[in-house]
Design a protein around this nucleic acid. Sequence first.
DNA 1: TTCTTTGTTCCGGA
DNA 2: GTCCGGAACAAAGA
Length: 287
Amino acid sequence: MPELPEVEVVKRSLKSLMLNKTIRYFVIKNSKLRYKIDHKQFSNIKNVKVKSISRKSKYLIISLSNNLCVLIHLGMTGKFFFVKKNDLKKLSFYYNKNDYIKKHDHLIMVLRNNNKVVYNDVRKFGFIKIIEKNHLFKSKHLKNLGPEPLTKKFNLGYSLGYFKNRNLNIKNCLMSQSFISGIGNIYANEILFKSKIIPTKAVKELKKHKVKNLIIATKKILKSSIEKGGSSIQNFKSANGMEGTFQDNFKVYNREGLKCSRINCYAIIKKQIIGQRSTFFCPKCQK
DNA sequence: TTCTTTGTTCCGGA
DNA sequence: GTCCGGAACAAAGA
């Protein structure tokens, strides 16, 4: 369940593996992801240099030397593995003997030294697309995204302006990518717990000091998770094979029926479906 | 077999 | 046209 921190961690690991390296060619093992992969588009690309690797919201953008970009969304279970050509032990661990592929490997980027960066996605809910650089931010995926939560654009004035006269609850608002981009279900739960706001609260009813708390909590939690390598649930790993540890810092997510983790609060964490997603909160702390 | 899980896009009603 | 909520999407593991 890669959200902003996990995608950021993957971006950093891909940078360390691929930046300024040459991709000799792509191999598509399975084109049936969220959107069907166009074989032709990928097979036409040979010997391109990786100019930059960036993240926008939960999207990864690999910018190539031929004026094209690879736009990637990890969906629920998308991950990258790095496989060294000569590391036979690793190969036999990751691949079966016959075709050097393991289950759910869908796309392979072969680098100049025959090292490989492999995209693996059990649920096939992620996608990989080639887009012209000029069209990237006009694409339906990127054009309606709100500001990045870790930038100065996400501030009190912006938030109060957005909340004014809007009829939706704060949980759905955090998850909608148009307010701020990159937050999913898990971090929305954690952010609301930290800022002591009940998920069903209407955004236009939020007092100024609560909005301040919300902004501070959002930035703190996302930063802290990135520092800890993200949250390794659903076997999340960076392309370097590193697991994150932020899941050990979850204060409310998946804690239904357990005691609130705040000192001196003995309330029991409740679960409720909001925005069609499991929502966890402390009925005493969060108002 | 049934339930649960994920984020984005699409669509209908207000 | 805008806003908002809910369905659909796909697949697999428990």
